[in-house]
Structures are given as structure tokens and as C-alpha cells.
Computed example of a mutant assay.
Amino acid sequence: MNTKIDALNWKILRLLQDNARVSFATIGREVGLTAPAVAERVKKMEDSGVIMGYKALVSHAVTGHQLKAIIALRAFMGKLKPFLALVGTFDEVVNCYRITGNENIVMEVVIKDQFHLERFIDKLIQYGETRTHIVLSHVINNAPIHGAPN
């Protein structure tokens, strides 16, 4: 479904991306609408699938997961489907993408330390060859909304 989004809805979406718990009254003040009008627009965007859900952002460092890594996997013949069925059960994986190119999978993982990383890679190598990159810092905090006017 391709839902047309007007400029006010783009502003509402940006505010919700910054803070999904912001009140409709606060959004209304920012975009020049009443709280009920904002609520109606948000409900329509939820119903149409534009807004897919809300989530809590977790500080992995505070939970004891000091390292973040990007791991690419090039699956062995016949191992991609079993891996895809299993990857959702790994607590370490916060994002996983099936990609084109030399590798089949790219995962963003959070781990406690290098020993935890080693054990996690040991789980992965039965499914394919891995390439691991340790994340040093987070450069961009929010991804842009695709299709949003500038």
C-alpha cells in the first residue's frame, strides 16, 4: 500500500522518531494543529502501515554489553535457510539484513567483551565464513525518513 504523506505528516513522523512518547499536544504546538487532529493523523498513519510500531531504545553499554560489532556471513551451500530460521533466536543480534554481494547476511550485534564475541562467532562458523568489524562509534543517530521532503 502506497500512502501519500503530506508535509504536516512528515513533521509529525520526524517528531515521533525523535521521541515516540511525545504528547499529541506537544506535537500539535510544533506543527500548528490541535491534539485531536494530531491523534487522528497518527491513527491514520498507524492504520495504513506508515507507522509500523514503537520501541524502547536500550543502552547496551548500561546493560553490560560494551562492544558492538558488524558481522557479515557468507553462508555455506545449503546453510542459508537454516541460518535464517535460527538468527532470530540469538540475543546478541539487534539487526540482521539479507544482502547482495559476496556475503549473504550482515548483522549488528552487541556483546559483553571479546570472549563473548569469540563464542558468538563460534556459533556462526558452522553456517558460513564470517567477517567481523568492531564498531568504534555511532556517527549518525537517526536515519532519515525515506521519501521525506527536505
Rank of each mutant, 00 (worst) to 15 (best):
M1T: 13
E129Y: 08
I121E: 15
L73S: 05
Q114H: 13
G101A: 05
N142V: 07
A20R: 14
H146P: 00
L124D: 06
Y54I: 06
T132Q: 08
E129L: 04
G78C: 04
P82A: 03
P36M: 03
L84K: 11
H138Y: 01
T89G: 15
V106D: 02
I12C: 09
Q114L: 14
I12W: 07
N2A: 12
V139A: 11
L80S: 03
A25C: 00
I134Y: 02
V58F: 05
T63R: 12
H146W: 01
F90R: 10
V22N: 01
A143Y: 06
D6K: 03
P82I: 07
G32S: 00
K79P: 01
M77S: 10
I125P: 08
R41G: 05
W10D: 07
L15R: 12
M1N: 13
Y97L: 03
T26P: 01
V31A: 03
G49C: 09
V94G: 07
S23F: 05
F90N: 10
P82Y: 06
A56Y: 05
F24S: 15
T3E: 14
I99Q: 10
E30H: 08
W10P: 08
N102W: 03
R14M: 06
T63Y: 12
V58A: 01
T3V: 13
H60A: 08
H133T: 10
A37P: 02
A25F: 01
N104G: 01
L84Q: 15
G64Q: 12
V50L: 05
E46I: 15
V106R: 10
L15D: 12
A7L: 09
K4L: 08
R29Y: 02
M107T: 02
I134F: 05
I105G: 04
I111P: 08
V94A: 04
K4V: 13
P36N: 10
E108A: 00
L117E: 08
D47R: 11
R14F: 01
F115N: 15
I12E: 11
R41N: 11
E92N: 09
L16A: 10
V31C: 03
T63V: 12
R41A: 12
L84H: 00
K43Q: 14
L73H: 02
D6Y: 09
D6W: 07
R29T: 00
I71N: 05
D113L: 10
A61N: 11
G88A: 09
V58L: 14
V87G: 02
I140T: 06
V62I: 14
G78K: 10
I111H: 02
V135P: 00
Y54M: 07
T89R: 13
N102T: 07
S59D: 15
M77A: 11
T132N: 08
T132P: 10
M107S: 05
W10A: 11
V38Y: 05
I5N: 03
G78E: 06
A148P: 03
L84T: 11
M52L: 15
L13H: 08
A61G: 09
V50F: 02
K55I: 09
M45A: 07
L8N: 14
R119C: 03
G128F: 00
V50S: 00
D6S: 07
A72S: 14
K68D: 07
D91Q: 14
L67T: 01
I99D: 02
P144D: 10
G101Y: 04
E92F: 03
Y54H: 15
D113Y: 07
R131D: 09
D122E: 14
G49W: 04
P144Y: 04
L15Q: 12
P82N: 02
N95L: 07
L67A: 04
G88W: 01
F76G: 04
E103S: 12
